[in-house]
């Protein structure tokens, strides 16, 4: 299981790197689709069908919106002559990434190995969740009964984001 997931993740990383370096913005958007749909396959193998359904639809709609925006504006990636400033940016970024990898190495020591997760908080959710909420889908039970505050907060964020899009696009700017 772990090797299969590692191979899929490798493809996703290659797609991500290509998306950042593509010359054409349209192909960058399509390469971002590699990462999104690879994620769907990973979710299916991690036995999370809820997440797979949501992610496959969300990825499609994200691609539609991104392609619409790119076709409406320019497709050209910005060509910039190599300067000392961009070199410094790259070097600082790489050093920072090295530091973060080192600290992540320290942080993963406290995690359990892959596949041997012990249920601490959700022991009651899986054992008595169905009897208490009456929902056969335990994820929905957690979503709307045990953790309903969180879900309400997320729904509010969605509402606020829609309002934000309306506000940003309706403003009459100075021409």
């Amino acid at each position: 299981m772990e090797t299969l997931l590692t191979i899929i993740l490798g493809f996703m990383i290659i797609g991500a790197i290509y998306a950042l370096h593509a010359k054409d913005l349209l192909s960058a958007v399509i390469a971002q689709g590699i990462v999104g749909y690879g994620l769907v396959i990973c979710f299916l193998h991690l036995s999370a069908p809820d997440l797979a359904i949501v992610q496959i639809v969300v990825e499609t709609i994200t691609l539609i919106i991104m392609v619409a925006v790119v076709l409406d504006s320019s497709r050209e990636e910005i060509k910039s002559p190599p300067s000392w400033r961009s070199t410094i940016n790259v070097v600082v970024g790489l050093v920072f990434i090295g530091f973060m990898l080192y600290f992540f190495d320290m942080a993963t020591a406290s995690l359990e190995p892959f596949g041997e997760h012990t249920l601490r908080m959700s022991q009651t959710y899986t054992q008595q969740g169905a009897a208490q909420t009456g929902a056969a889908n335990l994820v929905t039970g957690v979503l709307w009964d045990f953790r309903a505050y969180d879900t309400l907060g997320e729904a509010t964020i969605l509402f606020t984001a829609a309002l934000g899009v309306l506000t940003v696009l309706r403003m009459k700017g100075k021409k």
């Binding site: 036995s47 997440l51 908080m121 335990l138 964020i157």
Partner: peptide, 16 residues
Amino acid sequence: FVDPLPQAMVLTAIVI
């Protein structure tokens, strides 16, 4: 069962 708690968190976060 697989832990349902992270799945519930991620389910909303994807839509956000």
